[in-house]
C-alpha cells in the first residue's frame, strides 16, 4: 500500500503538534497535511482532487467554519461522500457525539489528556482504516471513548 494520506483540521497549534508527533510514533508510512479550519479544508478537498486524503481528522470547535459545518459540506460533495472522517474533539457531550454521527462521521475520538493515549488512539484508527478498506467496518467498534 502507498503512503496513508491523513488530513488534520484543527485550529489549535499545540494540538496539531501533539498529533503530528504522535503520528510519527505510529510505525506506518503516513503523509500528514494540516489545515486550520473547515473553510480551508473544503477549499483543499474541492480543488486538489488528486490528493484526496484516505482519512480526515476533524476538530469541532473551530473559527470561520466549524467541524459540523465542514462535515456536512463533505457529505454533500459527491466524490467525498465516502471519505473516512474521524471527529477529533474535546467535547464528550452525548449530544455532540450523536450529532456528528447523524451528519455522517465515521469515528469519534475524544482528545485525550495523555500523550501515550493519543498514540494508542491513532494506532487503532489506522487499524480501522484497514477494516474500512476490507469492507469489515462497524461503527460501534470504533467509537473511542477515552
Amino acid at each position: 500500500m502507498d503512503k496513508l494520506k491523513i488530513l488534520l483540521v484543527d485550529d489549535d497549534e499545540d494540538d496539531r503538534q501533539f498529533f503530528a508527533d504522535a503520528l510519527e510514533g505510529v510505525e506506518l508510512n503516513t503523509e500528514l497535511r494540516q489545515l486550520e479550519n473547515g473553510k480551508s479544508c473544503m477549499e483543499f478537498l474541492l480543488s486538489d482532487t488528486d490528493n484526496t486524503p484516505d482519512l480526515v481528522f476533524l476538530d469541532l470547535n473551530m473559527p470561520i467554519m466549524n467541524g459540523f459545518e465542514c462535515l456536512e459540506a463533505i457529505r454533500r460533495t459527491p466524490h467525498l461522500k465516502d471519505l473516512l472522517v474521524a471527529i477529533y474533539s474535546t467535547s464528550s457531550a452525548e449530544r455532540d457525539i450523536e450529532e456528528t454521527f447523524e451528519k455522517g462521521a465515521n469515528i469519534y475520538i475524544k482528545k485525550p489528556s495523555s500523550f501515550s493515549e493519543l498514540k494508542k488512539s491513532l494506532k487503532q484508527v489506522v487499524k480501522m482504516n484497514w477494516a474500512y478498506h476490507l469492507n469489515d467496518f462497524k461503527k460501534e467498534n470504533f467509537l473511542l471513548k477515552i
Binding site: D14, F18, D21, T90, K111, P112, S113, S114, F115, S116, L118
Partner: peptide, 15 residues
Amino acid sequence: EPLRKIQMFVSRLDE
C-alpha cells in the same frame, strides 16, 4: 481545554 494541554505537556515531559 487548558487543563488537557497541561496534562498533555506533562505526559510528554514525563515520557
